[in-house]
């Protein structure tokens, strides 16, 4: 029975994606939708980033590159061939995955801060390459004015597609968490040399996680570009997006998909409240203080902390069956 195979983590995922998908039926308020659109996109990015950054412990600071590759691919396919977002986003994901495959082999030979730096630089390189590709003429961005008037590309519909991206991303993360593959990635995170003496093909697993993680970002980028109606180097290649995604995952906790999702949602909400209450500049400073506080006092993330404190009353409600647990 399918019911027996779903644990609490799966059920939580279904509830989360279901509730987010119901929102347009309840309200068409522009503010609510645009707020949730960003929340869902960041959640997808953070959960996808975590497949490599959390499970395997390779923390990339260049994740936005794959959002950008997916976004630019998606828009370009419409401009050139008139393809719809249902097609352009998956193709964007494939292209992002391919790029990750090419840069992954050399980059994943490095670890820790060296890997972080190299991914940061690679992202800048990919941005320079994409925005200067001959024939693409994309240095000033590409716009989709005509496409946006079509009701088939309404904001609500694109929001629903982004919720679909989140669903796919969580599904992928869950499949990794529950499988042999996840066990291998956790072992790499904990001690790569030991993992290699236990029969694990560390290179293949790491590159695979990088490709999956990048493809998921490309998928999100493919939809996000349509939602914006244009692609420009900001936000599609904005380094701040890369950094935010890392912070979201670390804030929530990287052991399973729930942490990055909670981290992304929490940061989006906090950011929004601070901006509304105090205006942009002050909000930035307070936002920074919140982050410093969390990193100092909850180094393993919010979700593991909550779970530990709730354990006496709630027996292991949130995805406790994860092989690697939370860091």
């Amino acid at each position: 029975m399918i019911r027996d195979r779903l644990d609490s983590s799966d059920r939580l995922a279904i509830v989360v994606v279901g509730v987010l998908a119901l929102v347009p039926a309840l309200t068409m308020d522009q503010y609510v939708l645009s707020f949730l659109m960003l929340l869902v996109m960041y959640a997808s990015l953070a959960v996808g980033w975590n497949v490599l950054g959390g499970y395997a412990g390779y923390e990339s600071f260049g994740h936005v590159a794959f959002l950008g590759v997916g976004g630019y691919t998606s828009v370009w396919l419409f401009v050139e061939y008139g393809l719809e977002p249902y097609l352009t986003a998956p193709i964007g994901a494939a292209v992002a995955g391919f790029v990750a495959l090419v840069v992954g082999y050399p980059a994943l030979r490095l670890k820790g801060p060296y890997f972080a730096l190299v991914t940061l630089v690679i992202a800048l390189g990919i941005q320079a390459l994409v925005t200067n590709l001959p024939g693409l003429d994309a240095s000033q961005g590409i716009f989709l004015p005509a496409a946006l008037d079509d009701p088939a590309h309404s904001q609500a519909l694109l929001y629903l597609l982004m919720v679909g991206v989140l669903g796919v991303t969580i599904l992928a993360a869950r499949l990794v968490e529950r499988s042999k593959y996840g066990i291998g990635l956790y072992a790499i995170r904990e001690d790569e040399a030991v993992a290699s003496t236990q029969g694990i093909d560390t290179t293949r697993l790491k590159v695979g996680a990088f490709v999956l993680s990048a493809a998921l970002a490309g998928l999100a980028g493919g939809i996000y570009a349509w939602y914006l109606g244009y692609v420009t180097p900001t936000p599609m290649f904005d380094v701040r997006v890369s950094i935010l995604v890392v912070l979201m995952a670390l804030l929530g906790g990287t052991g399973n998909w729930i942490g990055p999702f909670v981290g992304a949602a929490a940061l989006r909400v906090v950011d929004e409240i601070l901006v509304l209450q105090f205006g942009g500049q002050v909000a930035q400073i307070m936002y920074g203080l919140v982050l410093v506080g969390v990193i100092l006092y909850l180094p393993h993330g919010v979700v593991p902390w909550l779970r530990r404190h709730a354990r006496s009353r709630l027996p292991d409600r949130l995805g406790g069956a994860t092989p690697g647990g939370d860091r």
Binding site: I183, Y186, E190, I200, G325
Partner: peptide, 26 residues
Amino acid sequence: TRPYPGMTTQDNLLPGLVYAGGYDRV
């Protein structure tokens, strides 16, 4: 000693079992 520090004692054995020990099913 280099156990996988963040894993439980039981989970420490899983990588070896599934990747070299022939236990394909988790």
